[in-house]
Amino acid sequence: MVQIANIELPDFPLLLAPMEDVSDPPFRAVCKANGADLMYTEFISSEGLIRDAIKSRQKLDIFEAERPVGIQIFGGDEEAMALSAKIVDTVNPDLLDINFGCPVKKVVSKGAGAGVLRDIDLMVRLTKAVVNSTSLPVTVKTRLGWDHDSINIMEVAERLQDVGIKALSIHGRTRAQLYKGHSDWSYIAEVKNNPRIQIPIFGNGDIDSPEKALEYKNRYGVDGIMIGRAAIGYPWIFNEIKHFVRTGEHLPPPSIQQRVEVIRQHLHQSVAWKGLKAGINEMRRHYTNYLRGLPNIRDYRTRLVTLPSVAEIDAVLDEVILAYDGYKFEPRKINMDSMAYSCDS
């Protein structure tokens, strides 16, 4: 069992990463149903919460069925972070996470996300302000450092633990790498093996298969792993990893019926949460990933992303089931670089 304050997770838990424009309640619901143990919201601007920005407030929506769930905030101002932590408190998530890892320019230029990696004293002050302003367990997600010449994750881990965080998730890249190259988990292992570190350490970066998850578990000794882009359009990855870690055997790839069932669940929950037009529009980014690997799928996909009603989309999905009934999917192989559009810090 892995413990984050009063939150009990199974041995070697699998966490769903907070991804901008992806990790909304409908997406989290299908990941939860397929094995995710702990999930996070999309990151939320502390300044947006304070301004009562509609989009920021909507990201606070959490539901009982998805617990345990954490709300993630970002910002570079101590007062704003403290006040936003108090706002988060009011919706009663299971924990509050701070994003010190998002590498995108619009966040970094505001001195937030991975931008804080250039000023560890500020990172400590921001974290302390949040810890002192909430009754929730506080966790952090970050990267190895700003660039290869300033990798400072060990200092970050020790100092943030000292001011009260209850777990740390580490993406094995620097900010300068963005999502390019390979993540280096050796630094994550060093943090985990540091006798001063008593909090759970979760690794993140490049986990895209059950084999890699088990390999990294054994090689680096982390308490659990966080999965981001590999879950987009493929929430089955969580249960596939759990089964492989437990048995050494692969689950069969989901059938076309199983894929369409999850697409429908995602679509219907998206419409229920965001309304008809926004819910249908939000789903359009997901069809390609859900149906990846099917031959001659373009015409169906084109219809799915242009139809204006749930009934019409459901009818096309019925056609997809009939057209590909009995189709044998190959084990999944993905190009992570093609999925690097979200701020998975």
Rank of each mutant, 00 (worst) to 15 (best):
residue 120 I to N: 03
residue 68 P to M: 06
residue 95 L to W: 13
residue 166 K to F: 07
residue 155 E to Q: 15
residue 78 E to C: 15
residue 142 T to D: 02
residue 70 G to D: 00
residue 35 G to N: 05
residue 29 A to G: 13
residue 96 L to S: 05
residue 165 I to V: 14
residue 76 G to T: 01
residue 133 S to F: 04
residue 124 V to M: 06
residue 38 L to F: 15
residue 139 T to E: 03
residue 128 K to Q: 11
residue 47 E to M: 04
residue 107 V to M: 12
residue 70 G to T: 00
residue 90 T to P: 09
residue 158 E to T: 15
residue 138 V to Q: 01
residue 167 A to G: 00
residue 106 K to C: 05
residue 86 K to S: 14
residue 90 T to V: 10
residue 169 S to N: 12
residue 46 S to K: 04
residue 40 Y to P: 01
residue 48 G to T: 06
residue 157 A to Y: 03
residue 52 D to F: 13
residue 109 S to Y: 02
residue 150 S to G: 00
residue 163 V to N: 06
residue 160 L to Y: 10
residue 78 E to W: 01
residue 130 V to T: 09
residue 53 A to V: 03
residue 100 F to G: 05
residue 144 L to E: 00
residue 50 I to N: 08
residue 165 I to S: 02
residue 53 A to Q: 12
residue 37 D to L: 09
residue 117 L to E: 01
residue 151 I to A: 09
residue 57 R to C: 12
residue 118 R to G: 05
residue 29 A to Y: 15
residue 37 D to F: 13
residue 69 V to C: 13
residue 116 V to I: 15
residue 34 N to W: 14
residue 131 V to D: 01
residue 122 L to W: 00
residue 102 C to M: 11
residue 105 K to L: 07
residue 157 A to L: 10
residue 88 V to H: 08
residue 96 L to A: 13
residue 151 I to E: 03
residue 89 D to V: 04
